[in-house]
Simulated assay, not measured.
Amino acid sequence: MIVRILGEGQFDITDACFESLNVLDDAVEKAVEAGDEAAFRPALAALLAGVRAEGVPHDPESLDESDLILPPEDASIDEVREMLGDEGLIPG
Rank of each mutant, 00 (worst) to 15 (best):
M1I: 10
M1W: 06
M1C: 06
I2E: 09
I2Q: 10
I2W: 09
V3S: 03
I5S: 07
I5D: 03
I5F: 06
L6W: 02
L6P: 00
G7V: 08
G7S: 09
G7Y: 12
E8W: 10
E8A: 11
G9T: 08
G9V: 10
Q10G: 15
Q10V: 12
Q10R: 15
Q10Y: 13
F11M: 09
F11R: 04
F11I: 14
F11K: 10
F11T: 08
F11Y: 15
I13K: 03
T14E: 13
T14W: 03
T14R: 08
D15W: 03
D15M: 05
D15Q: 09
C17I: 01
C17T: 07
C17A: 15
C17Q: 13
F18M: 13
E19F: 05
S20D: 14
S20C: 09
L21T: 01
L21N: 04
N22S: 05
N22T: 03
N22V: 00
N22G: 05
V23L: 12
L24T: 04
L24S: 06
D25V: 12
D26W: 02
D26M: 04
A27W: 00
A27L: 11
A27P: 00
A27F: 00
E29C: 03
E29H: 02
E29D: 03
A31M: 07
A31D: 05
A31W: 01
A31I: 03
E33T: 05
A34T: 02
A34Q: 04
A34I: 00
A34W: 01
G35F: 10
G35K: 05
D36P: 00
D36S: 07
E37A: 15
E37K: 14
